[in-house]
Amino acid sequence: MRKSTLMVTSLVAASALTVAWNTGQQTLNNEILLLPTDNASPAVTDAATTDPGATATAEPTAPATDPAATDPAPTQGAPQTPTATPTQTPTKTPTTPAAPVAPPAPVTATKSSDPITYKYGTVQISMTTVDGAITEIKMLQGDATNGRGEAYATLINATIQNQGTNYGNISGATFTVDAFKKAVDNVMAKF
């Protein structure tokens, strides 16, 4: 390659990489892992307006769950979030109506999800709620190799923080995240 062309090409390539890097940083801040809490509140209002009948999607056992949940779309990347949010918000409905029903004394309940089988194994969780709010999640089943153990810890925190599954993907654990979210949706439907 001629020197001048090589220089121009390198410059263009370097700037493209820099822009990509910056975009990546922003993507990360906005999307991946834990969503900031202010994102959670609009999600709840969304949920209130959604048809409660939509909770039915969480009821059936794993294999029959809405195919939309397994769609690669709700993974990561800025442009994908808008589509991800609506498919996941309905699952919030059980928690919100539960709150006014609860008497002054705190009501603690613990329930287990159905075992969710997926590509790399089975995920089963138990969830404890106090007055309808998720306070604790335990892994009953789940293959913890290949960094999945770590992923579960992150996912449990994210679920408690968001009081639901309205958070992004963990890059590198797409299928595990999907399976975990299904388990959360499944158990939440039982409360």
């Binding site: 990509a20 890097w21 993507t27 990347g77 890059s171």
Partner: peptide, 24 residues
């Protein structure tokens, strides 16, 4: 032609970076 080769390598790197591959 040589630039095509460079581009073929650059595209996946850019996609990786935009996706927060390194940032994460």
């Amino acid at each position: 032609v040589e630039m095509l080769g460079i581009l073929a390598i650059l595209i996946p790197i850019i996609a990786f970076l935009i996706n927060g591959g390194l940032a994460a």
